[in-house]
Design a binder for these strands. Sequence first.
DNA 1: TACTCGCACTAGAGCGCGCTAGTAGAGCGC
DNA 2: GCGCTCTACTAGCGCGCTCTAGTGCGAGTA
Lengths: 333, 333
Amino acid sequence: MADVADKAGVSRALVSIVFRNQPGASQETRERVLRVADEIGYRPDSAARLLARGRSRTLGVMFTVHQTFQTDLIEGIYPEAERLGYDVLLSAAVQGRSEAKAVEALLGHRCEALILLGPDADAGYLDALGQRAVTVSVSRRVPRARVDFVHSAESKGVRQAMDHLVELGHRRIVHIDGGRGPGSAERRRSYRAAMRRHGLESEIRVIPGEHTEQSGIETGRLLLAERDRGLPLPTAVLAGNDRCAMGLLMPLARAGVEVPRDLSVVGYDDSHLSHLMPIGLTTVRQDAVLMAEHAVRFAVERLENPQLEPREAVLDPKLVVRGTSGPPPGEAS
Amino acid sequence: MADVADKAGVSRALVSIVFRNQPGASQETRERVLRVADEIGYRPDSAARLLARGRSRTLGVMFTVHQTFQTDLIEGIYPEAERLGYDVLLSAAVQGRSEAKAVEALLGHRCEALILLGPDADAGYLDALGQRAVTVSVSRRVPRARVDFVHSAESKGVRQAMDHLVELGHRRIVHIDGGRGPGSAERRRSYRAAMRRHGLESEIRVIPGEHTEQSGIETGRLLLAERDRGLPLPTAVLAGNDRCAMGLLMPLARAGVEVPRDLSVVGYDDSHLSHLMPIGLTTVRQDAVLMAEHAVRFAVERLENPQLEPREAVLDPKLVVRGTSGPPPGEAS
DNA sequence: TACTCGCACTAGAGCGCGCTAGTAGAGCGC
DNA sequence: GCGCTCTACTAGCGCGCTCTAGTGCGAGTA
């Protein structure tokens, strides 16, 4: 910075002013300073800036690599953060790197707020986090924790999907749940409620699973094994999310079970992959961009107005009918 | 920190020593300092620490969200970095956020080294970057730029794939290239060379594309439209990467073209999705974990020994035969 | 006694910025 | 000419830490 100041023939303070885009420098000087900085390859040091200013204007985002819906969210987070003048730092939870570790890394880099995409941690931990920093949880509801919360109305999404299937004539509809995955509990509950509402209480079946392709594959194998033992296949499956639905399709296709002729499959999320499958996945769309924008705005607003209480945003999901759902076998279409 | 020092009756320097776990303080004092710090709720400020120490021990990783192979790489980067005592910061290039911006963010947060996953930037920019910070490029070769380089031997991978197809009896093999995508140029060149080597020079056809599902879908539509005009379909397609291959399968399936009976498809990368497709994608495996480890090690070693010259690691890819490749139509299997 | 050595600890100079309080000079009205 | 304001710019402190170069002291050695 001193080098830039010398070479541009101004004081360090003026360079600072230019880089913060603050009034107090002529247009001419501004350009000269920026040009010199570019030549030297100078870049403001955020650590020093942070130290001097006390604020980092940085949002930390914790996500799970491979969760396609979360990468969709990230795409929405960047532009909104930039619009509001905030920087974004990403930290991934992966195999062998827990959420807590990912979060510590963010905090260690002085993020002012945390945006957690589908956190798996317990409410106590999240509440403690919420006391320490502004925290937003996306896709996971955490009652009584001091965190903002952005999710979509799982019950509405599930209801739409179930109504769609029942209208097509399905009765034997099973649900692969998402285990501890975000939104799973609500989806499971809503599935049960929908079955009861349609008088299908006796057909309720929840197969434990996860939000992964592997889980879908395993469920597929399970169902096929049952069929081979003489049990009937369900006529429709409501998967925990799109990845699970995609996994499910693999063993089915291999075994010659045709979708949707023999079996209908509905996913959840409408992640960017779901319309890329051979016949397009019928799924429940959550608007990732909108969710991302809400999350960023919640964080920033609470940062700039600390007495604000955490809020909750519930967005409406929407069923997207594509190629994997149709009338059950035995019914004319 | 001063408060802790006062209350514990020592100097700030000693508190610093205690918190850095360095020799130079008695066990007794150590405990007293830690106890007092805990009472006050003192935590070292990493921004100040960073500033004072001059080293951040942080690696910055630039990646493209949605490139599944890159997320596979990220999974490999974390554990290796942790093993070597380095922190990792992620920055994504997305629509509307260029690579340069993503890199600036990393540099601004004082990353000591940059690991760029499949960078798209030109050699001049990368060289400039390499002068300024230790830089590693993964999957993209940048001749004469001051960067380390980790990639796999594209020519070997393509040759294996092509030999496989030719052995099966294919002659009309087209290649969807990856445009400016990492490795595309080499793959394209190797495809041409392999065709010539097999005496198929007259059959060479490279369809321009990208490393996206969308590109595969468009190519599929193009080929189908040609077929409808009476032109023959190719019997095999070597896609630019797995995503492109997956996209290609969609319009084919819709149009009733059966894979691999009517058409063989080979991908590239073996990203974690390729074995999750209905019939498993035949593809060229690049070992993401190994590549990630090399990248981290290159960065760290050059950081700790600055007179080291940038190096290059070329890993051997390996063809993985799954369900999308078979003999061409008209040949007995 | 005089010395060296090692240990526990301290003083104080930065690290690269932001920010407050200030100055110099131009322009203006009276 | 004077005082005033406004713009463009500067000096220098301080953010919370690390690190170098010390000081003081007791034990061991000649």
